[in-house]
Computed example of a mutant assay.
Amino acid sequence: MRVASPRTRRDLATLGAHLAAARKIQDLTQQELAERAGITRGTLVRLEAGEGGPRLEALLAVARVLGFSGALVDAADPLRTEFGRLHAGRADRKRVR
């Protein structure tokens, strides 16, 4: 497995802290959130700790329960950035070289 860059590790830690804060604000235990998201408590612990191992599906399930999966998915929309809008024609390409 590749070692994550320092920036990626920081982003994972920040995302994990945000997940934990959102859970606490909603007065949910780790066990309650994990059950509602259909994941194990251990997976949630790893997400909140900023570990890079849990699957993207687990992250989206947790975000859905916490109420911001739509915002998370929308944040990845390339057309939300000026660069993406300027180069939107590239999205139609079948193959990127």
Rank of each mutant, 00 (worst) to 15 (best):
M1S: 15
R2V: 06
V3H: 08
V3G: 04
P6T: 10
R7M: 04
A17T: 11
H18V: 00
A21Y: 05
R23E: 06
R23I: 09
I25F: 02
D27P: 02
L28I: 03
Q30V: 04
A34C: 11
A37P: 07
A37V: 02
G38P: 15
G38M: 09
R41G: 08
T43F: 12
L44C: 05
L44P: 12
R46A: 10
L47I: 14
E48Q: 08
G50V: 04
G50A: 05
E51D: 15
E51M: 12
R55W: 08
R55E: 10
E57C: 04
A58F: 08
L60C: 05
L60D: 03
A61V: 02
A63Y: 00
R64E: 00
V65F: 01
L66I: 00
G67A: 01
F68Y: 11
F68N: 00
S69C: 06
L72G: 01
V73E: 02
D74C: 02
D74I: 00
A75H: 01
A76I: 03
P78D: 08
L79A: 11
L79V: 05
L79S: 10
T81G: 08
T81E: 04
F83D: 09
R85V: 06
L86E: 12
G89E: 12
A91W: 14
R93E: 14
K94H: 15
R95G: 05
